[in-house]
Amino acid sequence: MSYQFTWKEKLASYKNEFSKGVWGYWELGAWKPLALSARKRAAIRKEVLLAGEVWPYDPPKKEMRNKRKGHKCDRVSAEKRAHTAELMKKMPDILLDYK
């Protein structure tokens, strides 16, 4: 049976690689992937999190979109109805100006 490295030793040996990014990094205008595979990186991350430690190498989470996109025709027709309602309020003045 072979010796299993503990997560602390793995983390110490790949610390420089983890700090470069999640998937890779740009160096002199060329994209360089990490020296260790995503599967090995995920395995080490899982060991660290199971041990109750903090994994600081994840990218920051983006804010979730809360605005729903919807269909353009729905937005346009709602705007048209609002515009028509405003014009109907002005209708008596327009008719008086016409006479």
Rank of each mutant, 00 (worst) to 15 (best):
A38T: 04
A12T: 08
W7S: 14
L50Q: 03
E9T: 12
A43S: 12
L11T: 00
L11W: 07
P33R: 11
G70N: 00
K90H: 07
K15M: 01
E47F: 02
E17S: 09
G21P: 09
V48Y: 01
K40Q: 14
R45H: 13
R45T: 00
A35V: 09
W55D: 12
L50F: 07
W31L: 10
S77C: 05
I44K: 07
A30T: 02
A12F: 01
M64G: 09
K62R: 11
K46R: 15
Y25E: 10
K89C: 03
G24R: 01
E53K: 14
N16I: 10
R68Q: 14
I94V: 14
A78P: 01
W31S: 11
A12K: 15
R41S: 05
R81P: 02
D74N: 13
E53H: 08
K46T: 09
A38N: 08
K69A: 15
E63V: 02
G29R: 03
K72D: 10
W26Q: 13
K8S: 09
E79K: 00
A51S: 00
K40V: 10
E63G: 13
G70F: 04
A82E: 04
R41C: 02
L28N: 13
R39N: 15
K90M: 11
G24F: 13
G24D: 10
K62N: 05
Y57P: 01
S19N: 08
E27A: 15
L50C: 08
G24A: 03
W26G: 05
V48I: 14
Y3V: 10
L49G: 12
P59D: 05
R75Q: 07
L36Q: 03
N66K: 15
Y57R: 07
K40C: 10
N66T: 11
E27I: 01
E17V: 03
R41G: 01
S77E: 03
V22K: 05
V48S: 00
D93R: 03
E27V: 03
I44E: 02
K89T: 13
P60D: 12
N16G: 03
E47R: 07
A38W: 01
K10V: 07
C73V: 05
Y25V: 01
R39K: 12
L49V: 06
K69W: 01
K90T: 06
F18I: 00
L87R: 08
M64K: 15
E86N: 12
